[in-house]
């Protein structure tokens, strides 16, 4: 399901050696983190990656190597800097710590939970599955691949919670875990 890495067009700042160093000047640093946030979000969107961990900067071979490293200029993002970038992203809601109460791993919000809620509702409507009980598995691994294929459960929960607030979804306990029923519009 992942798109091959090589089709992603890296921004030119990615070839700048100092881009991989945490900047001591706060305003310079703010600019750099803004670029990193943008890069991480667009790369995640491109490859449909959901989870970014501090470990991804520690070892090679992760899904994120292409942006966390630049072998041509022999630079890599070091874990403390990645950790800082993640904290800024979480603060601006571009990511969320998952699981909560730790700072080593985030869910990347290349779509906001609101947008995911909308996508879920549109998908249920378009595939004629309103008012029926759907298990989480039905949503994350449907017979016909959808936008929601592979969505992590915590993110799916957030989307459902958002729909529930406007009475467009209801959580339901089913035999093998949890399910959800999605409604056309607010009741």
């Amino acid at each position: 399901m992942s798109v091959p890495a090589s089709t992603f067009l890296l921004p030119s700042i990615h070839s700048a050696p100092p881009f991989f160093t945490q900047q001591p000047n706060p305003s310079t640093q703010a600019i750099a983190v803004e670029h990193w946030t943008h890069l991480i979000l667009s790369y995640a969107r491109h490859r449909r990656l959901f989870v970014l961990r501090v470990e991804d900067a520690e070892t090679t071979g992760s899904d994120w190597d292409e942006i966390l490293r630049n072998p041509r200029i022999n630079r890599k993002l070091l874990p403390p800097y990645l950790s800082h970038i993640l904290s800024v992203m979480v603060a601006s809601d571009a990511a969320a710590y998952e699981p909560p109460k730790q700072t080593r791993s985030v869910l990347v919000h290349w779509r906001s939970p609101d947008e995911w809620a909308q996508a879920l509702h549109s998908w249920a409507t378009a595939t004629g599955q309103l008012n029926t009980i759907l298990t989480f598995y039905d949503i994350t691994d449907p017979p016909i691949e959808s936008e929601l294929t592979g969505i992590p459960i915590p993110l799916l929960r957030k989307a459902i919670a958002i729909l529930s607030k406007t009475n467009r979804a209801q959580m339901i306990g089913v035999a093998d875990g949890e399910g959800v029923r999605i409604f056309a519009a607010g009741r």
Partner: peptide, 15 residues
């Protein structure tokens, strides 16, 4: 130039 003016960016991985 780094700290005061933001005219330079630091690179601490210089070979």
């Amino acid at each position: 130039m780094v700290h005061r003016d933001g005219l330079c960016w630091l690179d601490d991985q210089d070979e």
